[in-house]
């Protein structure tokens, strides 16, 4: 009972957080799919991007792509 009230109050507040995380995840996934070479296997990066909150996409942006080429 109490928790459902809490949830409906919390949802509009945390919605932007979830949306931003989704945007980061989608950008990272698109870049990962388009990249010719990634540092390490691509499917591992996909798992990291999807399952590691916030830091998964950041780690891919910073370290995931090989820029030589």
């Amino acid at each position: 009972m109490k928790e459902s009230i809490d949830l409906s109050q919390i949802l509009p507040i945390i919605a932007p957080i979830i949306v931003i995380q989704l945007i980061l995840m989608v950008i990272a996934l698109v870049l990962c799919a388009k990249a010719d070479h990634t540092r390490g296997p691509k499917w591992v990066w996909v798992l990291i991007i999807i399952f590691v909150n916030i830091f998964g996409p950041i780690a891919f942006f910073i370290a995931g792509r090989r820029t030589d080429g």
Binding site: I23, L24, L31, I54
Partner: peptide, 17 residues
């Protein structure tokens, strides 16, 4: 390189959290 998009988003996320 999408940096202009994701770096501000990370800061906004840190700021909201």
């Amino acid at each position: 390189s999408f940096k202009l998009l994701w770096v501000p988003l990370v800061f906004i996320l840190l700021g909201i959290m």
